[in-house]
Amino acid sequence: MSLYHRGQRGFTLVEMAIVLVIIGIILAAVLKGGELIGNAKIKRFYNEQREIFAALYTYYDKYGYFPGDDPAASGRWPGVTVTNGNGNGLIAVGAASTAPNFACSGTGTEQCDLWQELRAADILTGSGFTNPTHPYGGAIAVSYYTMPAIAGGTALTAHWIHFQNVPYDVCQAIDRLYDDGNAGKGAIRGTADYMAATNGVYQLSFKF
C-alpha cells in the first residue's frame, strides 16, 4: 500500500525563506548574547584590578603603610598571625624587585602577609594568606617588581597588581581599552608580548 497521498506537498520557497530568517535571528541572538557575556567578563576582570587597588590604598590611609609592608601589623589583630614588614614603602623583599607569588600559603613575605592583613582589617573578603582569583581562573599577586623590556619598551620597576593566566585575547582587549595597546609600555604590561599572540595565556600586570 502506498504511503503517498496526492494532497501532500513540500515547503514552498516562501515558507523555507521564513524558516531560514527565523534560524538566522536565533543564531544572531545567540552570538550577540555570547559577545555580551564576554564583554561583561572583561569588565568584571578590569574592575577586580580596581578593587584591589582601592583595598591597598584604603589600608594605607588607615594605617600609614601598604599591607605587607606594615611594621606594626603583628600587633594589630589579636590571634592573627602575620610578620611585620620593614616599612620602607615597598611590597618587596627589602628594596629589591620581587617576582609575584601566585601561590601564597603562609606568613613571612610582604606580598603574602598582604592578603592576611587586608582580610584582618576587614577590607578584603575571605581569610588567610591565599591569593584571590580573577574571573578567568588565575591567581592575583601584588609586588614591587621590574617588568621586563619587551615589545620595544623599556624595563620599569614599580608596584604592580599581577594577574596570572589571562587569555591572550583578554590581555589584548584590556590593553587596547585602558592603555596604549603595547605589552611593553604604559601602565598595563606583560612579561611576554601578548599583543602578538594568537593563543595561550599570559601574565597581565597593572601599575599602581
Rank of each mutant, 00 (worst) to 15 (best):
A72G: 09
T198N: 07
I25E: 10
L27S: 14
G33M: 08
V30D: 14
G152A: 06
V82Q: 08
A192L: 09
A55L: 09
R44K: 14
N165C: 14
L27H: 12
A158T: 12
L36H: 06
L20R: 07
G200N: 01
C112V: 02
N199S: 09
N199R: 02
G126H: 03
P167G: 07
N84Q: 11
T12G: 05
N84A: 09
F129Q: 02
V166S: 00
G138Q: 05
R50G: 11
N86S: 00
L90R: 03
G126W: 02
F208I: 15
L124M: 13
A72N: 07
L118C: 01
R9Q: 07
Q111C: 12
V19C: 08
S205Q: 02
F208N: 11
Y60L: 05
A40F: 05
A187Q: 07
K32G: 15
N39D: 15
K43L: 07
V93Y: 13
N182H: 11
H159S: 03
L36I: 12
R76L: 01
V201N: 15
S97P: 06
L204S: 01
Y63E: 00
T146Y: 05
I52T: 13
M147R: 03
V14I: 07
G181R: 09
Y178D: 08
M195E: 13
A158I: 12
R189A: 08
I174S: 05
K185Q: 15
A95N: 13
W115Q: 03
A40K: 05
A96S: 11
G138I: 08
F45Y: 02
G94M: 08
H5S: 11
I23W: 09
P135V: 09
L13F: 10
A120T: 01
V201H: 13
T130S: 08
I26L: 12
A54M: 13
S105R: 01
R189Q: 06
G153I: 12
P135L: 00
Y145N: 04
V21E: 15
E15F: 09
N101F: 10
A192Y: 05
N84L: 10
L3A: 13
G152D: 08
G87W: 02
Q172I: 12
Y144D: 03
M195W: 09
V80D: 10
G87N: 00
R119H: 02
A28C: 12
A149I: 04
I161Q: 02
V80F: 03
A183E: 06
A192F: 04
F208H: 04
T81V: 15
A158V: 10
E48T: 10
G200Q: 02
G200V: 04
R9E: 13
A192C: 09
L20Q: 11
A196H: 05
G85K: 01
A103I: 14
A155G: 04
F163T: 01
Y202H: 02
R6W: 15
Q172K: 11
A99N: 06
T83A: 11
T130E: 13
A103Y: 14
I91A: 06
D179I: 11
A103F: 13
G181H: 09
G38E: 15
G128P: 03
G64T: 06
L20G: 09
D61E: 14
V30C: 12
G153N: 12
K32Q: 15
I150D: 02
G106D: 03
R44D: 15
P135E: 08
E15W: 05
A196K: 09
I52P: 05
S127W: 03
L124F: 08
